[in-house]
């Protein structure tokens, strides 16, 4: 496989105008990237393109070497099972307990038998005692950690995280970063959108991470100044 996610002259326009323009980028298997940039620059939009919630309005985007526009709705669903996403707004099913939410990707894939390590996983993200709690009763930080647990429970090839440490204290942020770097060492491709420059500096001391910056609708490689 040449790349897990490949952008080729990709643009994305909302009704009001072009948000991303002429993006060409390849995320190689096992790479670690940070995506940074000012608020509203298009970081979340870029991530949504990466898991096909949005489709490019121009250019070519491939996920696991398949052109995203050629994917059927079922293909997109199957592709998303290979991509763990930590959403900024941490969407959960509020009527299900936390444990059922974390194992939801396994449930929808018909792989409920693979949830054996759930307690270990919940314990690792510090939610071991909250398996039966309903999502509305969780704090922002707890929801973010639960979202991370859900994102990795399928053992995805790619992990996308949108501001994953936004509601976490520094200790928990480091813990999360350690988990992401461990997953990266296991061969997972990781892309983290964040404002947190300290987190990026910390990560660069652990893994050879590349830093991408969105500015003026385009993505540039940053790094020397971080």
């Amino acid at each position: 496989m040449r790349s897990v996610i490949a952008f080729e002259n990709v643009a994305y326009s909302y009704g009001g105008g072009e948000l991303l323009s002429d993006i060409s980028l390849r995320l190689a298997p096992g790479s670690f990237h940070f995506l940074t940039g000012p608020s509203g620059a298009g970081k979340s939009t870029f991530l949504k393109l990466c898991y096909a919630e949005l489709l490019p309005t121009a250019g070519h985007l491939s996920l696991f070497d398949r052109e995203v526009r050629s994917l059927s709705r079922d293909d997109i669903a199957l592709t998303r099972r290979r991509i763990g996403v930590v959403h900024q707004d941490c969407q959960f099913l509020d009527h299900l307990p936390l444990a059922a939410n974390v194992t939801l990707p396994l449930t929808v894939a018909g792989r409920t038998g693979e949830a054996k390590d759930l307690n270990d996983l919940l314990g690792w993200v510090g939610l071991g005692a909250l398996g039966q709690a309903l999502p509305p009763s969780l704090s922002g930080g707890e929801r973010q950690r639960a979202a991370l647990a859900r994102a990795i429970i399928m053992g995805p090839d790619v992990i996308l995280a949108d501001e994953p440490t936004g509601n976490l204290d520094w200790e928990m942020s480091l813990r999360l970063l350690t988990l992401l770097t461990e997953l990266n060492r296991m061969g997972k491709t990781v892309l983290v959108a964040t404002h947190d420059l300290n987190l990026i500096r910390q990560a660069k001391s652990q893994v050879p991470a590349r830093v991408l910056r969105i500015a003026k609708r385009r993505i540039q490689l940053a790094g020397a100044d971080l």
């Binding site: 709705r73 079922d74 959960f92 099913l93 939801l104 929808v108």
Partner: peptide, 8 residues
Amino acid sequence: TLRLVGAR
């Protein structure tokens, strides 16, 4: 949410 976690 179900679509985002890979439900068909």
